[in-house]
Design a protein around this nucleic acid. Structure first.
Lengths: 339, 339
DNA sequence: ATGAAAGCGCTAACAG
DNA sequence: CTGTTAGCGCTTTCAT
């Protein structure tokens, strides 16, 4: 026995397919009686509508495709949670795809997503292969690029400038009196946004006649364990920096643990700065410096734009929203008061 | 101009719809020439197949629905990453839904997922509403319940016994010489697995003639910040425990930070134990005790079972896989050597 | 190796 | 308020 179809529900209720369809969708022009008969029949048969047929027939889906580079990074999970929450109540459904930071995989994933005829698509970052970009342009649905604003968006763009984030952090740290900067990062060839932050940071250092006196960069993905390892390495070899800029908070937290273990005073001896403003940083024994990225909020906003682009005039919506990450020096603000 | 259909590609290539269909799917019985003409036409028109039509027509999808309670918890993100990886190369596509630990939402989410006619469904935990359970049973697709094995599965079940995990941890901590136990947890009404661990733990304490001498439980979801706050509260009020069992590693990490801040020696004065074996714990200044849950692996395995249940004889597959979480006392193992 | 016909389960657009 | 007629874009099945 197959799964019951609308036709079978209709038959059981003694009405036509159309009446059943209308009744189940809560259409206005259906008699109370029909609604009752139909919903009872549906209930009784355990009827679950077939969205494939619905979508094909009505030529529209409630799908919002979301493409992110990774899932093992809490940051993207939070963005997804934001999108999911932002879609709540709209009747839209998020569908997620993961690229593993691989442009080729991104192409395949986006193609696969588009084949489901989503109503809108949200992708991470502004860098896509040429063909991938064409795919998105030709899809004729709202395209929302999130997280980054340093580049040329296809249509809608919500994020922050990582170049500027790096610059501002450099300014703040210089303002806090630091001069001997180290850099600890990972997978910069894949994490383009981390690379942009580093570039912005270096730009400001250069303008101040400075540059990183030590760098430790690994090809693996970021993690507290990696940040700890690289920091231990850096601390073991002269010259010792008075401030280390990390590719993100995971790495920075590891750096903090490394310092604690080596008896290096934080922030007196070494100031530690990350990026994201992870929830974890609020709990650390020493509050490190960080720029808070509104990642959940970005997700919610992207979701909202996706919905609005389908109802309101898509052309009148703001096409670019740039967040300014708030910098906090945490406990590090105290030793050398600034401003 | 709408998006090109197979028919248009076929026309452009000068063949019939069917030949085009076969050519694009790489069927055997198509002439080299046709394949060439069709693929060129498809390329040129920017053709992207319509999976809705494909699925409706062929009566099958490549969808594997996945339902998890939360996304802001790294644990589930890792499970999803595992599922995604496990599906890689199978042609299957994961679709994620989030329940926010709400049984009503779970029902809606599962219903929505099923309406897309997935080939299989993976859900978290064994506790579902009666109607939800019926929905899953009547779906006639492989149902895989993950994370937990303490209960009655619908079909396939992959996970670990959280009750036993709690018991084992209690044994280990007793073995390490601890006697004055505190408990710090959160959202136990929602996180049923954490509640099961606590029950298991308490059972063993009771058998040893003990019980928690202090408990601090908050309704919010777990986080390092919360673990820190609750621990500070607990440390501020007598009696002081010599060991605190946390609902998970996030909370435990916060507990460690609280101790560090208060100058409480860990583990000499207070031993800290969590659950999950998060990557973070490897980097902490002091390695806390924890049970390592193979969450990514569970995801991969669930994905593999989903695939196999579609190809092999579904009835012959192992229906239950129980992982044994490995307990590590970390740096805490040293002070009182055991076994 | 290719094509024609039928139909997947549903809704849009018209009738009544 | 209800029903009928046509598809949506693809694959399946059966011819050729």
């Amino acid at each position: 026995m197959r799964k019951p179809t609308l036709e079978e529900v209709a038959a059981a209720a003694g009405v036509s397919k159309m009446t059943a369809s209308r009744a189940l969708r809560g259409a206005a022009d259906v008699s109370r009686e029909s609604v009752l008969k139909v919903s009872r029949a549906a209930e009784q048969l355990g009827y679950v509508g077939n969205r494939l047929a619905l979508a094909l027939s009505s030529q529209r889906t409630n799908l919002v495709s979301v493409v992110v580079p990774s899932m093992s990074n809490i940051v993207f999970a939070e963005v997804l949670a934001g999108i999911s929450a932002g879609l709540e109540g709209s009747g839209m459904q998020a569908v997620f795809g993961i690229t593993d930071y691989d442009p080729l995989k991104e192409h395949v994933v986006i193609r696969d997503m588009l084949s489901w005829q989503p109503a809108a698509i949200i992708v991470t970052g502004l860098e896509h292969g040429e063909e991938t970009r064409r795919l998105l342009e030709q899809a004729k649905i709202p395209v929302i690029e999130i997280m980054d604003t340093d580049g040329y968006p296809i249509e809608f763009n919500i994020g922050l400038s990582h170049g500027v984030a790096g610059e501002e952090m450099a300014h703040a740290l210089l303002g806090a009196g630091r001069r001997k900067f180290g850099y600890v990062g990972s997978a910069l060839d894949k994490d383009l946004r981390a690379a942009k932050r580093k570039l912005g940071f270096e730009k400001v250092l250069k303008a101040a006649g400075l540059s990183f006196i030590a760098q430790s960069i690994a090809p693996e993905f970021s993690s507290a364990a990696l940040g700890k390892r690289l920091t231990l390495e850096m601390l073991a070899t002269a010259p010792e920096p008075d401030c280390i800029y990390y590719s993100n908070d995971d790495m920075a937290a590891g750096g903090l643990f490394a310092c604690m273990q080596k008896g290096v005073a934080v922030p007196d001896q070494v100031l530690i700065a990350g990026f994201n403003g992870l929830e974890l940083t609020a709990a650390l024994p020493v509050k490190i410096a960080t720029s808070c990225s509104p990642r959940r909020h970005m997700g919610e906003m992207a979701a909202r734009i996706a919905c609005r682009a389908l109802t309101d005039e898509r052309a009148t919506l703001t096409r670019r929203i740039v967040f300014t990450p708030e910098i906090t020096l945490g406990d590090h603000a105290m030793p050398d008061k600034q401003a």
